[in-house]
Amino acid sequence: MLIYAVCGAGIGTSVLLKANAERALSMLGIGAEVQAVSIADARGTHRMAQVVLATPEIVDQLTGIPAEIIAIKNIFDLAELGEKLKESLG
C-alpha cells in the first residue's frame, strides 16, 4: 500500500509527517510505504496513493484527488496519527 505525506514543497512538513506516520504505522503493525511529496506531485502523479496525509491547510488544496484524504492537525501527535490511520486502514 502507498501513502502520501503531502506539504507545500514536499521537502519540510511532509518529511516530518512521513517520519511520524511510519512510526505510527509500525506501532500499529501495518505495513505500508510512505512517500513525502509536494501538492503538485500529489495531484499530478501516475501512481496514486490509497491514502493521503496532510495538514488541514493543505487538505483544502487537494480536492479532487482520488484517494482517502486525512487531515492531521498535530503532526507530532503519534496518538492522533495512529487513531486516524487505524480508522482508515485497520
Binding site: G8, A9, I11, G12, T13, L16, E57, K73, N74
Partner: peptide, 22 residues
C-alpha cells in the same frame, strides 16, 4: 514560502517550523 503557501508550517498546536527550499 509563507506568502505563497500560507501558514502550513504551523504543524502542531502553538508550534511553527519555518523553512524554505535548499
Amino acid at each position: 514560502v509563507l506568502e505563497e503557501l500560507g501558514p502550513y508550517f504551523v504543524v502542531a498546536p502553538g508550534l511553527a517550523i519555518a523553512h524554505a527550499k535548499l
